[in-house]
């Protein structure tokens, strides 16, 4: 058994007061800290004992939905990150992280968004650091980041359902 730390954000049905779910949540999610400061949303900071990140996150989503059947998952964190976030997570300086990226050119993982700031999937960077730079990265963190990526991408993929999937897939294949 490992302890997996991750955060899940859910959207509530319109106009509902999150406090009405506390009673049920303390039964199913008492290994999470619940944040209700953003109206219409609920955030869950889980520390869950499990045999894999996948089992931990799947059971956590099920447990939230058991208490709040109409809640919909917005994001599983950590996954989408900027370089500052990665540096903070691993205890590097931001400058160091940036240098590492610039020096590595095209071998550094591609971002999901190039901008100010640019955004990456955390698991891509962690695995790259481990395999190419021999950094020691906690396996549970890689496991969580990788599973979160799957949840976040599946959620977005649900929006592409108008018959163009195959032709787009062909265009973006690497």
């Amino acid at each position: 058994m490992n302890e997996y730390e991750f955060e899940l954000t859910f959207k509530l049905p319109h106009g509902e007061n999150p406090e009405q779910y506390f009673e049920a949540l303390e039964k199913s999610c008492s290994d999470a800290m619940v944040g209700t400061g953003h109206a219409g949303y609920m955030a869950f900071d889980f520390s869950r004992e499990s045999t894999s990140a996948y089992d931990a996150i799947v059971s956590a989503v099920k447990d939230v939905k058991k208490a709040i059947p109409k809640a919909s998952l917005v994001e599983a964190t950590p996954d989408f990150v900027g370089l500052t976030d990665v540096a903070e997570l691993l205890g590097f300086t931001r400058q160091n992280m940036r240098k590492l990226m610039l020096q590595s050119g095209a071998s550094f993982p591609s971002p999901v968004h190039e901008g100010k700031p640019s955004i990456w999937h955390l698991s891509n960077i962690l695995i790259w650091l481990k395999e190419n730079k021999n950094y020691k990265i906690e396996e549970t963190l890689i496991d969580v980041a990788n599973t979160n990526k799957k949840f976040n991408l599946m959620k977005e993929l649900n929006q592409v359902n108008d018959g163009v999937q195959d032709s787009i897939r062909e265009l973006i294949a690497s």
Binding site: V34, G37, H38, A43
Partner: peptide, 12 residues
């Protein structure tokens, strides 16, 4: 996160 942690639940 738009202040999601500005209000938190405390379990018994």
């Amino acid at each position: 996160g738009n202040g999601k942690w500005c209000r938190v639940g405390i379990w018994s």
